[in-house]
Every structure is written in structure tokens, then in C-alpha cells.
Design a protein around this nucleic acid. Structure first.
Lengths: 193, 193
DNA sequence: AATGTTACGGACCGGTCAGTAAATAACAGC
DNA sequence: GCTGTTATTTACTGACCGGTCCGTAACATT
């Protein structure tokens, strides 16, 4: 009943996500977003409200796609070491092969905005806890952890830290050998039995 | 032979460091720095050159103080587990007790500026490699690692990732239980023999 | 074809950004 | 007490910030 939108909001959000991902919240200007989406400011504001909401929408998009995909990979059958090996290797491979050193957007958001913006903090915390839960479940398949919740939770937290730490080392320009070492050490820390 | 400086440059740099540490590079304005140092812009520019140089000077100050102190703690005598336990516990304790969730400035710099600014990248990389070296040396005391350089390097990288990951979990507002779990898992991954 | 509703585009808002110029002030050596 | 040098302060620059206004265009309904 009115003029139809001439662009794809999902596609726009994807571009916004990539921009915030690369440049951070304060590092991204509306001009950057306009350039990335090829949209005018007004179209963006009508769709999202303001810059902060664009950022949060971008984070949600990241969760719904990148994070979800990564956690899905943990649900496959097999020993815990194999499951996590797939997760860690994909990250290292991506950093080496395609030179993608953007890191993890969620991890970036932790260091960038979580302590400065309440909404971001709440969102990030919720996502981190969900990921932790997924890590824990992936460990349940292993006998060593199945009957020991404390140990399982501890190991899940440890793997989470290892994962985020690896992401930081990637952004910190560490060479392949270090990245592989960190990944291997994380996998080796998982009990196999 | 000229008008003496009326403020302490070291003290000013300390305040600048704390501001960048808390707000990030783009999130910090010259006004923020003026307010923190109680100095006028011109005094800052004469002393440092520009904002970027202030940031790099702040990073160097962090390295010369916080990082150096932390790595010194690893040089004490005793089993590797005890050495790293001290390092990790201090971080967790700081986050819990004093509510200090600023994280690690060097780690923040990795996710914030390392991929966007060449000088920062080089500096961060150098510091990360030095820290890695220190981790490796702290592991040399352990028999399991003394004779196996590959394993030692791998474990050092793993602990480094665990450390940075813990720092990210802290900024991501994770509860004490998760932080302690991550620290305990990291320590448990060190071979004791 | 007229109307109501939404989308678009560009000018524009006040404010802030990093950085600079120039005037004044405090010292040392002579 | 004059001169040279450096510190401090104020005022300013031009660009850019996030955000809004408003005139116009494109559609659906009637």
C-alpha cells in the first residue's frame, strides 16, 4: 500500500556487520556504513533507529550466523577432541589461508563495548553463556566429563578462554606456528577416554 | 634556560594510559585526555606529537609496568603450575575483588588497533612474542617440557591464549565461577612432573 | 485520477573531532 | 634589565561526527 523498499535489509545488515566487525563501534562512522551498504543515512536510520541499534543488530546477525554455525559443528558425533579440533582448526585455517584477521566479532565486542554500553554487555554476556553451555554439552559425550559436572564446567570455561585467546592472538598478528600451537594445546587439554 | 615544565610527564602518561585502556583508541577523545591529565591540548601535543603517539607511548608505559611486573612473577622458583597459578589468580582476583574489568591493555590493543594501524601491530606483535618467550622459559623448569622444545612452545602458546581468553571473559562480564573455571583449566593443562 | 502511506535523497543541524597559530608568561644567561 | 628559549593558554581551523528535516518519488487503495 506504499512505496516498496528498493534494497534488501538483510543484505544491508550483513554489510553493516562486516563494517563494525572490521572497524569496531567507535571506529565506524555513518559514512563508512553508507559506503558499505550503498545506502543513504536516512534509509539506515529509518530501518534501525540509530547507530547503537545498528551495532546491536549486527551483533545479533553475527550470533544468528557465524556463532550458530560454529556451535552446530560441536554437535556432531564423535569424541570431544574431534569436535573441538574442527572448531579450532577452522579458525586457524581461516586466519592463515585467507588472511582473515578480523577475529571474532563477539570477542571484539567484549573488549570494545561490553564495559561501556549496558545493552551490549547484556547481549554479550547472554551469548557467552549460551556458547559455554554448548561447549559443556559437547564435552558430555566424553566419559571423563559425563559424570563430573564441576570438571565439565571448568573444562568448558577453559576451552572458551582458549578459543577467545586464539582469536586475540590472530588479531595480534601472531605467526602460524603460534596459532597452531595454541590450538593444539587446547585440544590436548581435553581428556580422551 | 627556559620556562620549566609545570607538570610531570610521567604522571601525564600514566593518566593517558588509563584513559586509552578504559575507552580504547577511537573511543578516547583529546578532551577525555585533557580532563584526565588536567593539561591543555597544546601541552600534550608538544610532548607527544599527536594522538597516535600518545597511544603508542601509553602502550609502552603499560609494557614497562604492568606487563613487566606480571612476567617477573613467572621468574620465581618453583613448579610451573605454581608460577602460572600466581599469574592467573591475580587476574581473577582483581576482576572479582576490585571489580576491575578493564582487561589487559595489550590484549585490548590487539582487538582494537592492531589490524588497523601498522605501528600498533608491530609493537603488539613484538610484545606478544616477548611474553611468549617468558612463558616458555617459565615452563623450562618442568621436566616434561625441558627436553621437548616443540611441546614447550605449544604449551606456552596455549597458556598465552588461555590468559588472553580469560581477559576477554572478564570484559565480557562472565561470573566468578566461569573465570575461576577457565583459570583452573589452564593450570591443569600444565604437566607436573 | 485522487489520496494516503512509505521510501528516498540531499541539504542541513549543532556539536565535536584532531590539530595549529599566536599571544602571553616564566625562566636562564649575559 | 635585556634577550633568547621554552611553557602555557586561548582562540581558532576545517573536517567530520551522529542525527534530523523536508521536499519529492513511488507505490496501493479507492
Amino acid at each position: 500500500m506504499a512505496r516498496p523498499r528498493a534494497f534488501d535489509p538483510e543484505d544491508a545488515l550483513l554489510k553493516i556487520k562486516e563494517t563494525f566487525w572490521r572497524l569496531g563501534y567507535e571506529g565506524t562512522s555513518l559514512q563508512d556504513i553508507e559506503a558499505a551498504t550503498e545506502l543513504k543515512k536516512q534509509s539506515l536510520y529509518r530501518l534501525f533507529g540509530d547507530k547503537r541499534k545498528m551495532y546491536l543488530a549486527a551483533l545479533e546477525h553475527y550470533e544468528a550466523h557465524e556463532v550458530r554455525t560454529a556451535l552446530k559443528a560441536l554437535e556432531r558425533e564423535g569424541p570431544a577432541r574431534v569436535r573441538f579440533r574442527a572448531l579450532f582448526d577452522e579458525i586457524v585455517e581461516g586466519a592463515i589461508a585467507s588472511g582473515d584477521r578480523r577475529g571474532c566479532f563477539l570477542c571484539n565486542a567484549c573488549t570494545d563495548q561490553a564495559q561501556l554500553d549496558d545493552e551490549t554487555r547484556k547481549f554479550v554476556r547472554k551469548q557467552l553463556e549460551a556458547a559455554l553451555q554448548a561447549f559443556e554439552e559437547a564435552l558430555s559425550a566424553e566419559k571423563a566429563y559425563a559424570g563430573n559436572e564441576t570438571l565439565r564446567k571448568e573444562q568448558a570455561a577453559g576451552l572458551m578462554a582458549a578459543y577467545f585467546g586464539l582469536r586475540v592472538l590472530i588479531k595480534g598478528d601472531m605467526p602460524e606456528s603460534v596459532l597452531r600451537g595454541a590450538a593444539d594445546a587446547a585440544i590436548a587439554s581435553i581428556s580422551a577416554n
